[in-house]
Write a protein that binds this DNA or RNA. Structure first.
Length: 397
DNA sequence: TCTGGGGTCCTAGGACCC
DNA sequence: TCTGGGGTCCTAGGACCC
């Protein structure tokens, strides 16, 4: 017999996660605007004072901000130089990812003790399938929130609904430290008035395209005939938009999935010139390949497709990728294949001379946890040189 | 106001094979 | 010799998410 009970899915979202972790270390900053910035942010001196946003110089972005900073208009993803104009006296703290990962492990373990069916959605949020737990919703969620607080000292917001799509929307309706329970009957009154962009998967571009069709809210999207959406967005996205707006989502909570790719990238403190800064580019390129190899080794993976990513001074993005006959994981091999990718990049135009970001990626992953050194020479694992296209760029760092 | 780093999924064209 | 349809792999780019 198929199980026809409505599911009970929770989405748990930690409140201003990175900033809240920092406030545990600096409780004197509680109640003030605080911004957590990129790793290259200037470090607060260890004397009496903290760094202020207005003292920052560089290319970092806001990773998280406290609710007091958000009230001044400072949100995640915003350039720090920009946010300094909005909130010059806000405290700027450098991101400490090890501390956040530690807090993340703790809150997830605390939830898992109560409800083990968890889908990881990154460092600060999870879905939980509560369908098979007999306890009533409110006491169960209170118990989970109490356990999260006991394990971390941090609060979270939880949305509970019949599916992941609605649970995700809900967890945002009562922030911070809130609980929102939603049933299918609540959709017209509580979901339909919201902007379409509240649907996870409708970003800036799709929202703009919907706006051109005079669709602003989820309700307006729900009332749009499916065939119109299919004509405008294609069969896949069209059907998905129509279902999502009507609160339909059958995606199960996935407790584990194999990673598809592992990558490393870096934005330079200043744009590097393909020729004039070649030595530095080469050094950074090697370092990225070495870090990627370390990540692969630590996680026990090898990969067949190796790619590079470049962002130029004008912010345009370009990628190249090569698939090897056999998976590789050694830094020197990664560098060799990634170099071949670079040789296919046209560095001839002025716009392609100044590089802002360089990245190296490894995809088509295979288990590399017991990758004994190959009997074959390394060259056997790499694409043969006569399969590469004629060189476009004259250099490969 | 210039915009990090790590990911996922989708599309679309071409190669290649049956 | 020409034509076709389907399936899979590879590559590049784009939208989106945390």
């Amino acid at each position: 017999m198929p199980d026809t009970r409505p599911r009970r899915i929770a989405h748990l979202d930690m409140d201003a996660f990175f900033a809240s972790v920092e406030l545990l270390s600096y409780p004197q900053l509680r109640g003030t605007p605080v911004v957590v910035g990129g790793a290259k942010a200037i470090v607060p001196d260890h004397g009496a004072r903290f760094a202020r946003l207005k003292e920052y110089s560089g290319r970092g972005v806001v990773t998280t901000s406290t609710y007091e900073a958000r009230a001044l208009g400072v949100f995640s993803g915003m350039g720090l130089m920009h946010s300094a104009r909005l909130a010059p006296d806000a405290i700027l703290l450098p991101a400490r990812f090890d501390a956040y990962r530690d807090a993340s492990r703790k809150f997830k373990a605390a939830v898992a003790d109560i409800a083990p069916l968890i889908e990881d959605r990154g460092i600060d949020e999870i879905y939980i399938d509560l369908t098979d737990i007999p306890e009533a919703t409110h006491p169960l969620i209170e118990r989970i929130k109490t356990a999260v607080f006991a394990a971390t000292g941090l609060t979270c917001s939880v949305g509970i609904a019949p599916n992941k799509l609605l649970a995700k929307i809900c967890s945002d309706l009562n922030k911070p430290n809130g609980i929102t329970v939603l049933t299918a009957a609540d959709i017209p009154t509580r979901i339909w008035p919201l902007p379409a962009s509240k649907i996870n998967g409708i970003g800036k571009k799709t929202a703009e395209r919907l706006q051109h069709l005079h669709i602003s809210t989820i309700g307006e999207l729900a009332q749009t005939p499916a065939d119109l959406l299919i004509r405008r967005f294609g069969p896949h996205i069209g059907v998905w938009l129509h279902n999502a707006a009507n609160g339909i989502d059958e995606h199960p909570v996935i407790t584990w999935r194999a990673p598809k790719s592992i990558s490393r990238e870096t934005t330079f403190e200043r744009d590097l010139h393909v020729r004039h800064d070649r030595a530095e580019l080469s050094q950074q390129f090697t370092a990225l390949c070495e870090r990627l190899a370390q990540d692969l080794a630590r996680k026990g993976y090898m990969g067949r497709s190796i790619g590079v990513k470049l962002r130029f001074a004008d912010f345009r993005l370009l990628t190249r990728e090569i698939t090897c006959p056999q998976p590789i994981c050694q830094a020197a091999d990664l560098r060799r294949v990634a170099s071949q990718c670079l040789k296919r990049i046209p560095f001839d135009t002025a716009a392609h001379q100044r590089i802002r970001l360089l990245g190296v990626r490894c995809g088509s992953l295979a288990d590399g946890s017991h990758s004994a050194p190959s009997e074959e020479p390394d060259a056997a694992r790499l694409p043969t040189s006569n399969t590469t296209t004629p060189q476009q760029g004259e250099l490969a760092f």
